[in-house]
Write a protein that binds this DNA or RNA. Structure first.
Lengths: 189, 189
DNA sequence: GCAGTATGGGACATAAATGTCCCATAAATA
DNA sequence: TATTTATGGGACATTTATGTCCCATACTGC
């Protein structure tokens, strides 16, 4: 449940991760990318790729799974349950930005997650939602809109800022601050 | 320059529009949709589709063009130059929500617009940007972040809310109000 | 050095989407 | 009714991604 490394040794584990990482990165930018493209990006032969993931669907599933794990680790490290909601929220933003590539892959195409809505991960349903609800209960966050909407709005802003950064429209170091500013206070002055 | 209907009569014009509309709708939900899928959605034969648009690229270009026209009309009707920036901004949100489908198609995949950044439409570069800059100059909007970022943030929120609505997560009538609320004031209370 | 493992690359078959061509037919028009 | 126009559908070649197989070659640990 915690990891896929049952008894996978050295090299195999390393190339597997290289493939998964490259696939996430490439597919985030182009959902229609070829397996050959991914193999090149991962710096492995196409044969090797097929050796690890028999077909495209298997690879896709694995990348989704892996991306969720990466995302989950980042969120766990952010310790969203600790401290004032506002500060936790800022850590959340930073954590999401850190895994921007994976976010872009997971949520770039709604079809990617199709069947996964609420059937997975029975424990710890939504760390972000929990934080937002806590903030709403403490009167720190807007309670007139749903927690789900707030989370979606946050993801959308992070996603957009990462995209802007990827296209050189915004310096990478500014992502977190910009998102936090707009997300917290909106654009009115 | 103003339209593609040089002397296209009756039936042709009608099926052309049917194809464009169906293509936008289908492609918004699945960028990898087949030409056959689009033909079915438009209720025409695949041959007919090829008769109007020789190949996939031609169709894509036409759908993009058409979507921009629809978007442009909606923005023009919003008369963003008139009245206080805040009210104009709210009309802008409503206008964007109205053409949510086209937005979802145009901006759902960053690759769709690839080469189009600032080379097109020399006149009226960006109605939204102009409004935002006006608002910033008048001290109504946040001037600490770029106008481009504000516009992207707005589109992201509209896009996300439309998606939520499309999946039944939010009533359609709430889209505009929710986006405006979060966009203007953020989530802090 | 030697066995076992991991890999890259080529050859190949298959499936699917695409683009082209042609013909029969329905609809509009004169 | 006769003619033009628009269409649907089938047949076909082409292209492209995919998946499989096989072999030579590194690399690893003994």
């Amino acid at each position: 449940m915690s990891g896929t490394d049952t008894q996978e040794s050295g090299a195999r584990s390393r190339t597997r991760r290289a493939i998964l990482s490259a696939a996430a990165s490439v597919l985030a930018r182009d959902r229609t990318a070829t397996l050959a493209d991914i193999a090149v990006a991962a710096d492995v032969g196409r044969s090797t790729l097929h050796r690890y993931f028999p077909d495209r669907d298997e690879l896709l599933k694995a990348v989704i799974e892996d991306s969720f794990e990466v995302l989950y680790e980042s969120l766990t490290a952010a310790a969203l349950e600790d401290g004032p909601p506002l500060e936790a929220m800022r850590r959340l933003v930073a954590a999401l930005v850190d895994v921007g590539d994976r976010l872009q892959f997971l949520f770039g195409d709604p079809r990617t997650l199709e069947g996964r809505e609420s059937t997975e991960e029975p424990d710890d349903p939504q760390p972000g939602i929990a934080l937002i609800e806590r903030g709403q209960a403490e009167g720190v966050f807007d309670a007139e809109v749903s927690a789900a909407w707030i989370e979606h709005a946050l993801w959308a802003l992070v996603y957009t800022a990462c995209e802007d950064a990827a296209r050189g429209k915004m310096p990478r170091h500014a992502i977190t601050a910009t998102v936090i500013r707009t997300f917290e206070k909106g654009i009115l002055r």
